[in-house]
């Protein structure tokens, strides 16, 4: 039997960030719509990169399959 899940799934497409009036606007993925100061955006970016590196290591170490 095939099971279908309608719950939100991890995004495989990146959000799009742009600069607007001295602020950073992030659109997507999905319902994400947030405005940040440049400093907050830079720190968020750094945090995202760190988390992404850790997630990649988890995949390599444990064989998680991100075949979404």
């Amino acid at each position: 039997m095939t099971e279908f899940s309608n719950t939100p799934q991890p995004q495989t497409k990146p959000g799009i960030a742009s600069a607007e009036d001295g602020l950073v606007v992030l659109d997507g993925p999905d319902g994400v719509a947030v405005t940040m100061t440049a400093d907050a955006a830079q720190k968020t970016g750094t945090s995202l990169i760190s988390a992404a590196e850790l997630a990649e290591k988890q995949v390599a170490d444990n064989g998680f399959k991100n075949d979404i």
Binding site: E20, D21, V25, A33, T35
Partner: peptide
């Protein structure tokens, strides 16, 4: 209404 900032709405 849309849960956005003024800058975001403007854009």
């Amino acid at each position: 209404i849309c849960g956005l900032t003024n800058v975001h709405i403007n854009r």
